[in-house]
């Protein structure tokens, strides 16, 4: 267990040492989104009986959790692969399960830290309620785990920084932006509504928001089932890659 604990500690220390860039910067970005959108839309829009700014805050929080969890594990792996320092974690007797857990938990922690920061920075701008805090935590944790794990896949697969940027910009960004962070999918035309149901990120955000307001597009239990199944699928894939040594051990 010391191997796992140390790797987790190292991964957390890695982002914490540059927390201005890894924590403070994404909090500021989310705050800017909120200030702009609420300025334009707060007076005109209500979603499910909730003021737009209040509706937007949980969306921005969970989006920050997801994007930063992905960024953490993927950037850590690609950096250590490109610089060669990945040997330091490949030479010791660390099992692939410990490896997986350390990177995913660290990614999740960074996501949660940024998410909490966004909540603190934006929460005073609109009346927020916390109807079911348990759901909030569950979706944040599993969502962070999924994205941390997906970040590992991307970091292992990519050989260069631009490949990773492609993964991030053309997959992760659209999935998170087009998932109901900024709107309720009930406001979409039927085709796009149906399409949104194939996006697992939609369920993470919808379930997370339910924890605040007690209203959602889909029942939270259904969202949890989809999110848990997604986590299992991504985690199994990541574990299989690590076990095979794909692009890590030749």
């Amino acid at each position: 267990m010391t191997g796992f604990r140390t790797l987790l500690y190292k991964e957390v220390l890695r982002f914490w040492k540059v927390s201005f860039q890894t924590v403070a910067a994404p909090v500021l970005t989310a705050l800017l989104y909120l200030l702009i959108f609420s300025h334009v839309l707060d007076a005109q829009v209500q979603v499910n009986g909730v003021r737009y700014t209040a509706f937007l805050i949980p969306g921005l929080v969970i989006m920050s959790v997801l994007q930063n969890a992905f960024a953490n594990s993927s950037s850590s792996l690609i950096q250590s692969k490109v610089t060669g320092s990945v040997v330091f974690v490949l030479l010791p007797p660390i099992s692939y399960v410990e490896f997986f857990l350390a990177y995913s938990v660290a990614a999740m922690l960074r996501g949660l830290m940024v998410g909490f920061g966004v909540l603190l920075a934006t929460g005073w701008l609109a009346p927020l309620t916390f109807v079911a805090p348990g759901w909030i935590l569950v979706f944040a944790v599993i969502g962070g785990g999924i994205m941390g794990s997906l970040g590992m896949i991307a970091g292992i697969w990519a050989d260069k920084f631009d490949q990773l940027a492609g993964f991030q910009n053309f997959l992760i960004m659209p999935l998170t932006m087009l998932s109901g962070v900024f709107y309720s999918i009930h406001s979409l035309p039927p085709f796009w509504q149906r399409l949104s149901h194939f996006n697992p990120v939609f369920y993470m955000i919808d379930g997370f928001r339910y924890g605040f307001f007690g209203v959602s597009d889909v029942a939270p239990g259904t969202s949890l089932a989809v999110v848990a199944a997604s986590f299992l699928a991504v985690a199994t894939t990541t574990l299989a890659l690590l076990r095979s040594g794909y692009k890590l051990r030749y």
Partner: peptide, 9 residues
């Protein structure tokens, strides 16, 4: 950190 990877605290 390297010590920890090898299980040594």
């Amino acid at each position: 950190i390297q010590s920890g990877y090898f299980g040594i605290r």
